[in-house]
């Protein structure tokens, strides 16, 4: 059983929504990534999206793009990221989703990328510039390796296309809460109810919501409507601001805990 299925099944049992933090691998440097992954787990992360940096990201906002540039400047490569996952996997069962632009995987060879990723304990790929239409060329390799390919659904996606994407999805579906690029926003669209109902009607897979979620209040709102809540830019911001702080990992852990708390059912 894929670790992702296991986690969502357990959370469902407990009536919890998943907290899914995004972290750019190699940011601010390669040495920081493993300790940061541990901090995410201690804070209560259920699934982790590990960003594979690309020189020319189109879907990312300024925060994540800057972190990617820095990670590349620090010498981050796909094989080095796999090495970090291998170390992480020796000590944790938290699912890892590799999140990154298609070209580095394509250039490495999608079959080899999927095989090598599976070997070190990766659970899924999320490739934002590989929509379901083009995904056919990567799906066999990823499936063959026993991994999932997570697809995105946008507010602009019309209903028949929602069905099409859901029919091709695996692991979970990722609903983009806002138009445009990634980045923390002050208000998360409250008009999520209808589109999420539409996605839920089209799939039995869990649905995670991301783009622009940064506060526990926002997490609480979204957690009531979806099986998972993704926090990206706000976390990368926090890491960036505390890059040299002695208590960086501690701060990250606390932040993750504060984001996870509202996703748990109230206990009396």
């Amino acid at each position: 059983m894929n670790r992702i299925d296991k986690v969502f099944a357990e959370l469902k049992e407990r009536g919890e929504a998943a907290l899914i933090p995004y972290l750019t691998a190699g940011f601010p440097n390669l040495e920081a990534t493993l300790p940061l992954l541990r901090a995410l787990v201690r804070g209560g992360a259920d699934v982790i999206e590990l960003g594979v940096p690309f020189s020319d990201p189109v879907a990312d906002g300024p925060t994540i793009q800057r972190s990617s540039s820095e990670a590349l400047a620090a010498g981050t490569t796909f094989p080095k990221i796999l090495e970090i996952v291998k170390q992480f996997r020796a000590e944790s069962e938290t699912p890892i989703v590799l999140f990154g632009a298609y070209n580095p995987f394509f250039h490495y060879g999608m079959e080899k990328a999927a095989r090598d990723a599976a070997t070190v304990g990766v659970d899924a790929f999320l490739i934002p510039d590989l929509p379901a239409d083009e995904g056919t060329e990567a799906e066999p390799a990823i499936r063959e390796a026993g991994l999932y390919l997570i697809y995105l659904i946008a507010p602009t996606t019309p209903p028949d296309r929602v069905k099409f994407i859901c029919s091709r999805g695996s692991g979970f579906l990722y609903y983009i809460s806002v138009k445009g690029v990634t980045g923390a926003r002050t208000s998360v669209s409250l008009e999520l109810e209808k589109p999420l109902a539409q996605v839920h009607a089209a799939t039995k897979l869990p649905v995670a919501v991301g783009f622009g979620i940064g506060t526990p209040e926002q997490a609480a709102q979204v957690g009531r409507l979806a099986e998972g809540v993704v926090v990206g830019s706000a976390l990368v911001d926090l890491v960036g601001k505390n890059r040299d702080a002695a208590d960086r990992d501690q701060k990250v852990e606390e932040y993750i805990r504060s984001m996870k708390a509202p996703l748990k059912p109230l206990t009396v």
Partner: peptide, 20 residues
Amino acid sequence: ARGHFGIFGGRYVPETLMPV
């Protein structure tokens, strides 16, 4: 019909742009 010139071309863009 999908915008491919042999193996080239296509639409490798975020889902937000696909419907557009």
